[in-house]
Design a protein around this nucleic acid. Structure first.
Lengths: 167, 167
DNA sequence: AGTATTGTTCAATTTTTATTGAACAAATAG
DNA sequence: CTATTTGTTCAATAAAAATTGAACAATACT
C-alpha cells in the first residue's frame, strides 16, 4: 500500500523467479501443489527467515494457501520455524539437507501407501480363497503372491534410499 | 446388447473390482490417471490377453481413454501386445516383473525431469554470476551448489533403485 | 475493557487434468 | 468397390484438485 510511484517493492527479482519456477516444477514431479513449490523456493533462496505474511505479499498467494502450504512443508520436515521464540509472529526457514527432505517425503507420502497397500493385499488374499474353480484360484494366488513380492521389495528399498540420500 | 433379462455379462466380479481399485490407488501415488490403473488392474487379473474393446466394455471407459491409456502403459513397458500376429485386433497382456515396471517408470517419468533439472540449474548458476553484491552472490553460489549436490545424489540413486528392484 | 495482529479453517470458486465421443484414417472382409 | 472393424486424435466436457477469501479463534497490545 505504501509504495508510491514505483513498482511493488515486494516483487520477486528475476533470480528469485527462476528459483521459484525451478521448485514449482520440482514439486509437481512429486505430486505436490505448486504453492508448495513457490513457498519452499522463496524460502530456499532467501537469506533471512520469512513470515507467513512475507510469503503472501511476495508470492501473491492467499493467506489460506500460505497457511496450508506451510503446514504441509512442516509435516514434511522441509521447513522449520526460525529461532526467535519471543517474536510476535513466526518466521520460517527451509531445511536444505536432502536426507531430511527425502526422509520426510518417504515418511509422509510413501510409507502410508505402502502400509495400506499391504492391508489391501491381505484382504485380496482372503477373497481369493473363496474362489471355487481351482485353476482360477491357482492363477489368482500367483498374482497375489506377486503383489506381496512387490511390497516386500518396496519395503526393502526405502531404507536403502534414505541411506544413499543421507550424506 | 445380447444380454437378455440378466445383468451385463461384462460386469467386473467383486474380486476383479477389488484388484482394479487396488491399482487405481496405486497409480494415483505415482501421479498417473485412474484409467491407467483400471486398465492395468484388469489386465493384471485376467488370465487371457484383452483387446482394447474388451477394456472399453468391461471397464465402461471410452475408446479414447482406452487407446491413450494403452499407449502410456506401452511406453512405460507395463503392457505388451500378446503374440498372435495374424489376429485382426491386438490383444494386450501385463508386464508383471517389478524390474520392468520400475525401469519404465524411471526412464519415462523420472529421468527426463532429472535432466531438465540439471539444465535449469546450469542456467541458474549463470544468473548468479551477474549478481553485484558479493555477499549475496556467495550465498547464492552455496545454494546452487546445494542443488547440484541434490542432482548428483539423484543420479546416483536411480541405478541402485533399479538394481534393488530387479530380481 | 476494546482493538490490532497473526494465523487457521473451510465452503465457494478457479484452475488444472482426465475423460469423452465424434470425426477420421487404415486395414480387412465381403 | 463398399461395408465393417479397429484404433487414433483432439476439441469439448466433466471431474478432480488447488486456491481464494471471508469468518473465525487466539493472543498481544493500549
Amino acid at each position: 500500500m505504501e509504495d508510491l510511484l514505483n513498482g511493488d517493492p515486494y516483487e520477486l527479482d528475476p533470480l528469485e523467479q527462476q528459483v521459484v519456477a525451478f521448485f514449482v516444477d520440482g514439486v509437481r514431479v512429486l505430486g505436490l501443489p505448486r504453492s508448495i513449490g513457490e513457498i519452499y523456493g522463496l524460502l530456499f533462496i532467501s537469506q533471512t527467515a520469512l513470515s507467513l505474511d512475507d510469503l503472501v505479499r511476495r508470492l501473491h498467494i492467499s493467506k489460506g494457501s500460505a497457511s496450508q502450504g506451510l503446514r504441509m512443508l512442516k509435516s514434511l520436515g522441509a521447513v522449520r520455524e526460525a529461532g526467535d521464540e519471543n517474536e510476535r509472529r513466526t518466521y520460517y526457514e527451509p531445511a536444505i539437507e536432502l536426507k531430511r527432505l527425502a526422509g520426510g517425503f518417504i515418511r509422509e507420502q510413501i510409507r502410508p501407501h505402502l502400509e495400506s497397500g499391504k492391508t489391501k493385499i491381505t484382504r485380496l488374499a482372503e477373497t481369493t480363497r473363496d474362489i471355487d474353480d481351482p485353476e482360477r484360484r491357482k492363477f489368482l494366488n500367483e498374482r497375489v503372491e506377486r503383489l506381496e513380492t512387490w511390497m516386500r521389495s518396496g519395503g526393502r528399498v526405502l531404507p536403502v534410499l534414505q541411506k544413499l540420500l543421507g550424506q
